[in-house]
Amino acid sequence: MTAVLAFSTPASGTAQPAGPALPITFDRLGRSFGTGNDEHVVLRDVSFDVVPGEVLAVLGASGCGKSTLLRAAAGLDRPSSGAVLIGGKPVNGISEQCAVAFQEPRLLPWQTLQANIAIGLPKSSSASRGKARVAELLDLVGLTAFAKHRPRAVSGGMAQRASLARALAREPGVLLLDEPFGALDALTRLKMQDLLLSLHRAAPATVLLVTHDVDEALQLADRIIVLGTEPGAPGATITNVVAVPGDRPRDRASAELARMRGELLALLGVERR
């Protein structure tokens, strides 16, 4: 049974549907690997909706299936049972409506940042429109002066900004983020969180964010879903749903968020001290 923690009312800062933002539905999703005695159930009966323009974070212990959930939404993996729907249509392979950013930038090392961002453009983009879109994104992520640099010539944070710009190049209805700032140092991570919020205000796609960082989830998300296991049942499922109060950007020193942080850490098995 899913427990809903009533920390507060739903966030008043939830982004309003705009532009291409699309809803996501996870309908009794299950994923297992192997068969018979070797079967390993990763996800079991996961059901939830993400409304257009919402930022929803997924928290859970390492290995609980967070990335597996995201891969199913991206069309990079097929569920064993259930389905994922985007814009009301079942996900069946990689969709032009989605873009993904991973923990590592995964830029082509022989290409410039400008060229790497251009890789994300829709195939239907004209040359002039594509060039203008790449220039716009370079400006948005603060990389215009480094457009001709190759990935090895810039910092990890700058490379991750380019990766995020590449994901946004196709103007996706859904942006899937798999621990996108996990490999960055603490200060760069905070700056990247602020950048993501700025980009979301400019083009509020629906965002599904997988993270292991409770503070990051509280800073960025409208709601947080916690994945965990239940006694006697295989695989992870939704154990808690949390609505995060307040408009974004939120005060990182907020007493309310500090209290919620403690509650969420407890749900993840981290004892309070």
Rank of each mutant, 00 (worst) to 15 (best):
G63H: 10
D49G: 07
R71F: 13
A57S: 15
K66S: 08
A73L: 12
L76A: 11
G63Q: 03
P52F: 01
C64T: 04
G63D: 08
R78A: 14
A83K: 12
S62N: 09
E54S: 05
A73M: 13
R78H: 12
S67N: 07
R71S: 11
A57F: 11
D77L: 15
L76D: 00
G65D: 03
T68A: 05
K66G: 03
L56Q: 07
C64S: 15
A74Y: 06
A73W: 07
V51G: 01
D49I: 00
S67L: 09
L69N: 09
G75D: 11
R78F: 08
S80I: 05
L76E: 05
G75Y: 12
L56A: 11
L70I: 10
P79K: 12
P79I: 14
G53T: 05
L56K: 00
S47F: 06
L69D: 07
S62P: 03
V58Q: 03
T68G: 06
A57G: 09
G53V: 07
A83E: 13
G53Y: 03
S47W: 02
S81K: 14
F48Y: 10
A57M: 06
R71M: 14
S47C: 10
S47K: 02
D77C: 06
P79L: 13
C64W: 12
S80L: 10
K66R: 12
G65Q: 06
A57H: 09
A73P: 05
G60H: 10
S80K: 07
E54H: 02
V58M: 11
F48D: 00
S67G: 06
V50E: 02
V51N: 02
V55E: 00
A72E: 13
P79A: 12
G60N: 11
D77H: 13
V50D: 01
A83W: 01
D77G: 00
G53M: 04
S80N: 08
A83C: 10
L56I: 14
G63M: 04
G75H: 12
L76P: 04
L59Y: 08
A74K: 05
L70G: 02
A72R: 00
S80Y: 10
V50P: 02
L59D: 08
V50Y: 01
L59S: 11
R78Y: 10
A61L: 14
L56F: 02
A73V: 14
G75K: 08
V55A: 11
S80P: 09
R78T: 14
A83L: 01
